[in-house]
Amino acid sequence: MLEVRDLCAGYDTVDVLHNVNITAEAGRLTLVLGANGSGKSTLFRTISGLVRGRSGSITFEDKSISKLSSNRIVRAGIAHAPEGRHLFPQLSVEKNLTLGNYARRSSKSELKELLTRVFDLFPILQEKRSQAAGSLSGGQQQMVAIGRALMSDPKLLILDEPSMGLAPMVTEQVLQAVAEVNSEGTGVLLAEQNAQAALGFAHYGYVLAEGRVVLSGAASDLQNDPEVQKAYLGV
């Protein structure tokens, strides 16, 4: 579904990604592992059009999206819940969610349906729907971020370290929701520090280091790979 080929990207004079190749299959959960600064966020930001790639190609459902604006990319079916969440802190939870539908402009009934789906996934958000997003706890904010991305009814959901800074119990809850979204058929591209948990429900994985893909394979293979175990699983 998503094909990243020989992608090079960076900021100003700094090159971050070097010839990165990644594929995310439809309906699958693709995991990207890597230490801080390995280029995971830059990769995601380039896919969603926040950063322009210098060379290489990004295709989504066989159409090139590397020159499209973020707006068009969301409409094509890729939604990105970024690192740091980037919510609208003073707007209510519900407005944050409905703004997630901005690019799609769904009809009222579709919008309601999408909203119900998010509230089913994260019931606490329904309770807090009229509160300012910025007043929520970190875990709840992360739920808003994922929910906002889901509101565009994406075919591919990009999640950049959704468990960052969350308590273990909340992390589990969030990752469970991610697995649930995936099991309902939405493709997921996930970067996650919590490799142990994520490898458990991922289908395929890549390991990034210094802007290069150094390892890739089925999630079960990665789980048994001594390098991965040493670096990410603390075995």
Binding site: L50, S70, R75, H86, S152
Partner: peptide, 20 residues
């Protein structure tokens, strides 16, 4: 109008939901 508030509060977030 909401797109104005969204950009005010978080430019990156606004871009990611498709606001120009």
């Amino acid at each position: 109008g909401q797109s104005i508030e969204a950009v005010e509060q978080d430019r990156v977030g606004a871009s990611l939901v498709g606001i120009n």
